[in-house]
Amino acid sequence: MKARLAMPAAGLNAALAVLAVLACGLSVALGYAPLDLGQALRDALAGRESIEALVLTEIRLPRAVLGMLVGFSLGLTGAAMQGLLRNPLAEPGVIGISGMAALGAVAMFYSGLAGAFSLALPLGGIAGALIATILLFALAGRGASMTTLILAGVAINSFAGAMTSLALNLSPNPYAATEIVFWLMGSLADRSLDHVWLVLPLMLAGWGLMLAAAPALDALTLGEDTATSLGFNLMRLRAQLVLGAALAVGSAVAVTGAIGFVGLIVPHLLRPLVGHRAGRLLLVSGFGGALLVLGADSLTRLLPVRPELKLGVVTAMIGAPFLFSLIWRLRREA
């Protein structure tokens, strides 16, 4: 009995981490053209600029690594938001961060800056996420309740959605709308290591902020008063999680577009495995998210559909049935 109480989720975390790394390997091995991986690896390590090494290091590796980073961010943020709002339907976009990140990228695109320098699009997305964060603090700052936070999120989301549609509507180029709609569906195709280096520090900071909130989220299981009585400052917790989500999800959306369902479904699936403990759920959801995104991205390349399906479409196709079965089960239990 005592041993079980003491048992951390280390085993589960390790298993999911190993699976995520394997999925990363699978992602590197998958591609559209046959690639001699051994040759590519030897060339890359020897510093030879062969075609194989180029494809491995500049195209497949960034794709796999970004898949891992973005998946981890989405899973972790989903778990953090569900824990903060104590609502299993919360997801990373619930406070408006992803909507504003998408708007930021779209704005960059229409201002023509996207063509001017290479990382304009993700930088615009990150700027959008930051603006959302500032708005959130202004709207739901000191002493406001969780409901205010959700309402602020809804307001920001609708605003960002409307502005994005407006941008599409006013688009000078009849084809731009199509392009941006496809971009918004989310994809990891043809991203580069530059993208990885841009988002890595932001995501790491965001992960750190959210993972550090684990004990507070555990305490929040018992409601806000009890959490406060256990020595947690809820205002600081909210700020910490909003900022963490902005850094992680903002940069994820900025490089890959919106990939839905991951942050919703992963914490759901893993929650029973950590005994429904909100704090323990964070890290495992990160690994679970990485696994799901890498798997879905591999699927986009395995499915005989060309051009490849958008990642957001595939995660939704995987996620929606899961959610339906979940609702079905809940209904039966009720």
Binding site: L230, H276, R277
Partner: peptide, 15 residues
Amino acid sequence: NWALRVEHLVALGRL
């Protein structure tokens, strides 16, 4: 809020 096991819930008192 979540379907915790009793001993896990009680352990929250150690936070």
